[in-house]
């Protein structure tokens, strides 16, 4: 990964991390992407801590330092502690995470690694546990998290490490 960003972010200072990033170079898409991020957090039939677990699993897999360092305030208020975040790693199946949380990670992993290899057993468990609306929302959230974190990695210039920072949900 390059240590210097491949493109320069616009000089905006809107306070919106998406608009102020290099994504601001494409005005035709930045508003829809920011709107999607807002909908993912504001219109969710899934509790925020579960969304945050999926987001952090993606961040860890993609190795986006920016995404890994962020904690959404709504997820913390919903009970996502750092002790719980520490369990979103290899071997999570044996962790103290709940069955719902483990299932959400398994869903993210199927997406992130080999979607074609998703088992019938996992598909059946997902359908049993989540409503159709919850699954659709999780799918949309996962695409949004993954697409934006891969954007950040592709642009480059990411530090090796960043302190954990709480931010307000959009």
């Amino acid at each position: 990964m390059g240590t210097v960003a491949r493109v320069q972010a616009p000089q905006g200072n809107t306070g919106d991390p998406i608009r102020d990033s290099a994504l601001g170079l494409v005005p035709e898409t930045v508003d829809p992407i920011a709107g999607l991020n807002r909908s993912v957090w504001r219109s969710s039939p899934v509790r925020p801590a579960l969304l945050e677990i999926v987001r952090l699993r993606n961040a860890r897999t993609v190795n986006c330092q920016f995404c890994k360092s962020v904690r959404y305030d709504v997820a913390r208020r919903d009970g996502l502690t750092e002790s719980k975040v520490d369990q979103i790693r290899d071997g999570y199946e044996q962790s103290a995470l709940s069955e719902e949380e483990k299932l959400a990670i398994a869903f993210a992993d199927a997406y992130l690694h080999d979607p074609k290899a998703m088992t019938a057993e996992l598909a059946a468990r997902l359908k049993r546990h989540f409503s159709a609306a919850q699954l659709a929302h999780l799918a949309i959230a996962l695409i949004a998290f993954n697409a934006t974190s891969r954007c950040a990695v592709s642009i480059g210039g990411m530090p090796d490490n960043l302190p954990i920072t709480e931010i307000a949900a959009p």
Partner: peptide, 9 residues
Amino acid sequence: IAGASAQAF
């Protein structure tokens, strides 16, 4: 079926 997030997507 996801509603607002599907529209935004």
